[in-house]
């Protein structure tokens, strides 16, 4: 009984506490958005939203497909698996109907590139967020 309660508590923590997410969604300070729905985040990371609502080009940064933070971001924020995103990008890139996101080598580079690129969006570990970027909330 005690053990079951413990699992219930852990599950509850994972599902209901925003602090439980392994990543933080970040944008460039000049990007005009404070909250994004899961649909919008999916469309942005699928490279299907070329512009923000004010016309600024969207610039998406990701880590490599096999990076643990990329995997947890895909599952938690998008409800998808890395191979699904890769397939959407490949289909767009090799049929000319879209482009691929920019792949960065590290979390440090991710923060730096998002901070310095207008219209940029990416994700880092929550404890890596600083004043150079804005963490946005994910409306589910």
């Amino acid at each position: 009984m005690h053990k079951q309660l413990k699992y219930l508590f852990i599950l509850g923590y994972i599902f209901f506490s925003p602090g439980a997410l392994a990543h933080a969604l970040i944008i460039n300070p000049h990007t005009p958005t404070a909250e994004l729905s899961r649909n919008s985040i999916r469309a942005i990371f699928a490279m299907r939203t070329p512009q923000w609502s004010d016309g600024t080009p969207v610039h998406v940064f990701v880590l490599a497909d096999n990076h643990p933070l990329h995997t947890s971001f895909c599952k938690e924020s998008l409800g998808m698996f890395p191979y699904q995103l890769r397939r959407i990008w490949d289909r767009q890139v090799f049929s000319g109907t879209g482009i691929a996101p920019t792949t960065v080598k590290s979390i440090a580079e991710m923060r730096e590139r998002v901070a310095s690129t207008t219209g940029a969006i990416g994700y880092i570990q929550p404890d890596q967020v600083n004043a150079s970027v804005i963490q946005i909330s994910e409306g589910f």
Binding site: N39, P50, S53, R91
Partner: peptide, 26 residues
């Protein structure tokens, strides 16, 4: 282009996205 909707047009030589795989089957 909005977060919920995209509308546009392709003009030129265009791949036909038949089924799940046609446009990138090569």
């Amino acid at each position: 282009s909005t977060p919920n909707h995209q509308f546009g047009s392709y003009l030129g030589r265009i791949k036909n996205p038949v089924g799940l795989y046609n446009e990138t089957r090569d």
